[in-house]
């Protein structure tokens, strides 16, 4: 089956992201296809390359990176929600005249149309609330 996930909770503040991560791994293990993971609301912080948890905690950013590398899943962060919260790719940094960008290269910033598209093309859409 084709799945899309909507993640809303901030990583490290809520369980939302880790629950979604474990769910994604279970999906892939069971032969399902992940059409898209859409990060919205406070979940946009998942995209920050700069987050660095202590060594005895799960590095969420690395987990997404692994899934991206091994399964090429589409990790899309809502651009409006992200820029507002300080998660910027190079283009946005330039556009807003910021000195640096911080979006991890596992993710891409895009519009809400990507969530609309995901609902249209997925057999299941699972929301992971904050």
């Amino acid at each position: 089956m084709n799945y899309s996930l909507v993640i809303l909770g901030a990583p490290y503040s809520t369980q939302s992201t880790t629950t979604a991560l474990n769910f994604t791994k279970a999906l892939l293990k069971n032969g399902h296809n992940v059409y898209r993971v859409f990060f919205y609301h406070d979940a946009v912080h998942n995209g920050s390359e700069l987050s660095r948890p202590p060594q005895d905690e799960l590095d969420i950013s690395t987990e997404w990176k692994k899934l991206k590398n091994e399964h090429d899943i589409d990790l899309v962060i809502c651009i409006a929600a992200a820029v507002k919260r300080g998660v910027l790719d190079n283009n946005e940094a330039l556009r807003h005249e910021k000195k640096s960008s911080n979006l991890s290269n596992s993710f891409e910033l895009s519009g809400l149309g990507q969530l609309v598209d995901a609902t249209e093309h997925s057999d299941r859409v699972i929301t992971f609330g904050p």
Binding site: A81, L115, V116
Partner: peptide, 19 residues
């Protein structure tokens, strides 16, 4: 909570795509 506005933003986008 910003979710209220973000929800309506989604609805606008979905409506624009004639969902």
């Amino acid at each position: 909570n910003a979710l209220s506005r973000e929800a309506i933003d989604y609805c606008l986008a979905a409506a624009a795509f004639e969902q």
